[in-house]
């Protein structure tokens, strides 16, 4: 019997702990698929961050390092500088990357670290139970913005791709979503490109993935996808924000 579909080799057999309808699983698959297709699992080191994806070190079959909260890109920098032949990626949520880890993110990006950053933006802190994230939308109700995010007191959401694309060290920045098959396919290509860029020595590549959190949004999985399309996509337009074909490094 011909196998037409199977789990990527770069994913382990460990059962994922994510909630029903959560899109982490899709993104894990896309990352693993990219490692498979590029044939680099054996020389890849992934960096897990703190948040819902903290235990991704059990799910990715490549070597993994679990970083302190917010520090994934500093840890990735250390790994990549120690072993440039390794393929190094971080997998981070919005709290980790765009709140506590903003400095590490901006500076890894501006240094043009030749790493791949997978950024899950679901507009909420999932693991701690649904508090306001740096990317929570104006008016969005969370545990810590019970009356809706008031931009007068809680400020405005951070648009990561737009912010980072102003930096000369960034070779590639694209925002995708995993709302349907079409978008998953776009996301798949973007993630693979972000890894290919690293193999080509092009410099910092980030893919921001708009994701759902049905549990903490208080919605069914189907409603969650709808909410994402109606609310997040307008605030966080999908597309390629930066793509420097020749890369940002003078030495490859």
């Amino acid at each position: 019997m011909a196998i037409v579909f199977q789990k990527p080799h770069a994913l382990t057999d460990a059962p994922l702990h994510y909630c029903p309808g959560c899109t982490h699983g899709i993104v894990h698959r896309l990352v693993a698929q990219a490692l498979d297709e590029l044939g680099v699992e054996g020389r890849t080191v992934g960096v897990a961050s703190v948040g819902c994806s903290v235990m991704s070190y059990d799910y990715f079959a490549c070597d993994m390092v679990e970083a302190p909260h917010g520090r994934a890109q500093a840890v990735a920098t250390g790994i990549k500088r120690a072993k440039p032949q390794n393929v190094v990626f971080t997998y981070q949520g919005d709290g980790d990357l765009a709140a506590i880890g903003t400095a590490e993110t901006v500076h890894a990006a501006t240094r043009g670290e030749n790493i791949t950053v997978i950024f899950i933006n679901n507009a909420i802190y999932g693991m701690t139970g649904g508090q306001m994230a740096p990317t929570s939308l104006p008016g969005q109700i969370t545990q810590t913005t019970p009356y809706g995010r008031d931009t007068n007191t809680a400020g405005y959401p951070v648009r990561v791709c737009e912010l980072l694309s102003t930096l000369d060290g960034v070779a590639f920045a694209q925002r995708v979503s995993v709302s349907d098959v079409k978008n998953v396919n776009i996301a798949r290509k973007a993630i693979k490109k972000a890894f290919q860029n690293q193999l080509d020595g092009k410099g910092y590549s980030i893919v921001e993935v708009l994701s759902t959190c049905p549990t903490n949004w208080g919605l069914s999985p189907v409603e969650a996808v709808q909410w994402m399309n109606e609310n997040m996509v307008p605030y966080y337009p999908l597309g390629v924000y930066k793509d420097i074909a020749e890369g940002v490094k003078t030495v490859k």
């Binding site: 080191v45 960096v47 390092v65 970083a67 302190p68 520090r71 500093a74 840890v75 990735a76 920098t77 250390g78 790994i79 990549k80 500088r81 120690a82 072993k83 390794n86 400095a103 590490e104 901006v106 500076h107």
Partner: peptide
């Protein structure tokens, strides 16, 4: 490698990463 990090926090975590990679 000499790398001037953005903070002491980043620097120690770069050490963490490099050490994790075995050097």
């Amino acid at each position: 490698t000499y790398l001037q990090a953005e903070s002491e926090i980043a620097a120690i975590n770069m050490v963490l990463g490099a050490s994790a990679a075995g050097i």
